[in-house]
Amino acid sequence: MRTWAFFLGGLIIWAAHFFALYAIASLFLTSPIARWLTLAATLVCAAAASGLLIVARQKSAGSDTDNWLAQLSTLFAGGALIAVLWQGLPALII
């Protein structure tokens, strides 16, 4: 189970951020509190994705299967970091 959580961690972080932004937008619409909550959610999820990216990059030593999983986890965490920043950007620049 831990391997799956590590493997899909980036996608889980991105999905949590995605749903959090939708909840914030639904509850607070365009109020200033929505911008601050969006900033907070984006920073928390970006930090989590960055941490997972660092751990996955360092874990690439080992057997071929472990190396492949670590490299794929690195790809997913990097993609999640880009997606989180991309989703949080419009609420912060308008």
Rank of each mutant, 00 (worst) to 15 (best):
residue 1 M to G: 14
residue 2 R to F: 13
residue 2 R to E: 14
residue 2 R to P: 08
residue 2 R to H: 10
residue 3 T to R: 12
residue 4 W to I: 12
residue 4 W to L: 12
residue 6 F to A: 11
residue 6 F to C: 05
residue 6 F to T: 08
residue 6 F to N: 10
residue 8 L to E: 13
residue 8 L to N: 12
residue 9 G to E: 12
residue 9 G to T: 03
residue 10 G to D: 07
residue 12 I to Q: 08
residue 13 I to E: 08
residue 14 W to K: 01
residue 14 W to R: 09
residue 15 A to H: 04
residue 16 A to G: 07
residue 16 A to H: 06
residue 17 H to E: 14
residue 17 H to T: 04
residue 18 F to K: 08
residue 19 F to M: 07
residue 20 A to S: 15
residue 20 A to K: 04
residue 20 A to R: 01
residue 21 L to Q: 11
residue 22 Y to L: 11
residue 22 Y to A: 09
residue 22 Y to P: 04
residue 24 I to H: 01
residue 24 I to S: 02
residue 24 I to E: 03
residue 25 A to V: 02
residue 25 A to P: 00
residue 27 L to V: 13
residue 27 L to H: 10
residue 28 F to E: 10
residue 29 L to Q: 09
residue 29 L to D: 09
residue 30 T to C: 09
residue 30 T to W: 14
residue 30 T to F: 14
residue 32 P to I: 04
residue 32 P to H: 08
residue 32 P to Q: 12
residue 33 I to V: 15
residue 33 I to K: 00
residue 35 R to Q: 13
residue 36 W to E: 11
residue 37 L to K: 01
residue 37 L to E: 04
residue 37 L to H: 02
residue 38 T to Y: 01
residue 38 T to P: 00
residue 38 T to I: 10
residue 38 T to H: 04
residue 38 T to V: 09
residue 39 L to G: 01
residue 41 A to T: 05
residue 41 A to R: 00
residue 42 T to M: 03
residue 43 L to D: 11
residue 44 V to N: 01
residue 45 C to T: 09
residue 47 A to K: 03
residue 47 A to E: 10
residue 48 A to T: 05
residue 49 A to I: 00
residue 51 G to C: 10
residue 51 G to T: 03
residue 51 G to L: 11
residue 51 G to V: 06
residue 52 L to W: 11
residue 52 L to G: 15
residue 52 L to D: 00
residue 53 L to G: 07
residue 54 I to T: 12
residue 55 V to D: 15
residue 55 V to G: 10
residue 55 V to F: 08
residue 57 R to M: 05
residue 57 R to T: 08
residue 60 S to W: 04
residue 62 G to N: 06
residue 62 G to F: 09
residue 63 S to R: 01
residue 65 T to S: 06
residue 65 T to Q: 05
residue 65 T to D: 08
residue 65 T to L: 10
residue 65 T to G: 02
residue 67 N to L: 15
residue 68 W to T: 15
residue 69 L to R: 13
residue 71 Q to A: 05
residue 71 Q to N: 13
residue 72 L to R: 01
residue 72 L to P: 02
residue 73 S to K: 02
residue 73 S to E: 09
residue 74 T to P: 00
residue 74 T to L: 03
residue 75 L to R: 03
residue 75 L to I: 02
residue 76 F to Y: 05
residue 76 F to I: 06
residue 76 F to R: 00
residue 76 F to M: 07
residue 77 A to V: 02
residue 77 A to F: 02
residue 78 G to Q: 07
residue 78 G to L: 05
residue 78 G to N: 04
residue 78 G to I: 05
residue 79 G to I: 01
residue 81 L to G: 14
residue 81 L to A: 10
residue 82 I to T: 03
residue 83 A to I: 01
residue 84 V to K: 04
residue 85 L to D: 12
residue 85 L to W: 12
residue 85 L to S: 03
residue 86 W to N: 07
residue 86 W to K: 07
residue 86 W to G: 05
residue 86 W to A: 13
residue 87 Q to T: 10
residue 88 G to T: 02
residue 89 L to T: 09
residue 89 L to R: 08
residue 91 A to F: 05
residue 91 A to M: 07
residue 91 A to R: 04
residue 91 A to L: 06
residue 92 L to A: 13
residue 93 I to S: 13
residue 93 I to T: 15
